[in-house]
């Protein structure tokens, strides 16, 4: 009990002494762990390399500058491909994620015994594998190119959108659902009139957020042959053409800034 009697008056403390000691012990354990991890990290470090890191970095920067702006001409198509991979992949992901989310949410799932666990499994399976690894698998299965990239983005997006959307569905106000049900509305009509309006802001926010992430992810898919600007990035890196790499980085940066601006606008529009 945090309340004790001292000199005949009740004294209140936030925690019991035992709890207080436990918290101190936990902090101590954290410090010990940090010291240990520091040692593990330093074991494999070749300090000679670290010591000349500033020179190496300066050298790399000097090779990267000035950017080879003429290389831009050969980036427009791959950039367009990248945006398409992200957009089509997100749309495809949404198409599958929405029904999965409705099956996974405990308040809309038609069968909590079979369909709900299945939907939750689909979400976990999709989320547990990174887009780059999905792309690796798909390039092996359907060959290199845009299609593999789009599918990889879609497969990863199903889990992300599905999870956030089903959590949004579970948080809706049940009174509105009850009121629409009480009018004699069918199951589908209750979805349309009471559930969908409540999750629409969350849905649009989640979708553009995922699209925003997918723009960034699709820039690296080319590293494993799944199309987009990553193909150019890989070839420039392989040729040690650092001034081209600078241009690619600049293009990616501008694209991400634009996509972030677009997603902020869309989210504002749907509140």
């Amino acid at each position: 009990m945090p309340v004790s009697i001292r000199d005949g008056r009740p004294v209140w403390q936030r925690r019991t002494p035992a709890r207080q000691w436990a918290i101190w012990a936990a902090w101590l354990a954290l410090v010990v762990l940090t010291v240990y991890c520091w040692q593990v990290m330093n074991r494999g470090t070749i300090w000679a390399f670290v010591e000349d890191a500033p020179q190496q970095a300066a050298d790399l920067l000097s090779r990267s500058w000035p950017p080879a702006w003429h290389y831009l001409d050969r980036l427009w198509w791959p950039l367009w491909d990248t945006v398409n991979i992200a957009t089509l992949g997100t749309l495809l992901g949404i198409v599958f994620a929405v029904p999965v989310a409705f099956l996974a949410a405990s308040n809309t799932s038609p069968s909590t015994a079979i369909l709900r666990p299945l939907a939750l499994f689909i979400i976990v399976a999709s989320r547990s594998i990174n887009s780059l690894i999905w792309a690796l698998l798909l390039v092996a299965i359907i060959g290199p190119g845009l299609l593999a990239g789009i599918m990889a983005i879609a497969l990863r997006s199903i889990g992300f959108i599905g999870k956030l959307l089903y959590e949004a569905i579970e948080e809706i106000d049940p009174a509105q659902v009850e009121a629409v049900s009480a009018t004699g509305a069918s199951r589908l009509q209750v979805m349309d009139y009471a559930v969908v309006p409540q999750i629409l802001p969350a849905f649009s926010g989640i979708s553009v957020f995922r699209w925003d992430i997918n723009i960034r992810e699709s820039t690296i898919l080319g590293l494993v042959g799944a199309g987009g600007i990553g193909v150019q990035l890989e070839s420039s890196l392989a040729r040690l053409a650092w001034s081209e790499v600078t241009v690619i980085f600049a293009v990616i940066l501008v694209t991400v800034i634009v996509s972030e601006w677009v997603s902020a606008k869309v989210r504002q529009a749907f509140i």
């Binding site: 009174a175 009850e178 009121a179 009018t183």
Partner: peptide, 28 residues
Amino acid sequence: RRRIGMIFQEYALVERLTVMENVLSGRL
């Protein structure tokens, strides 16, 4: 259910639909 109208505590309107849509939801 459609033969019985119900009025709720704290209104239970669908907040993001228009007034007209809320009224018409009585015909669902």
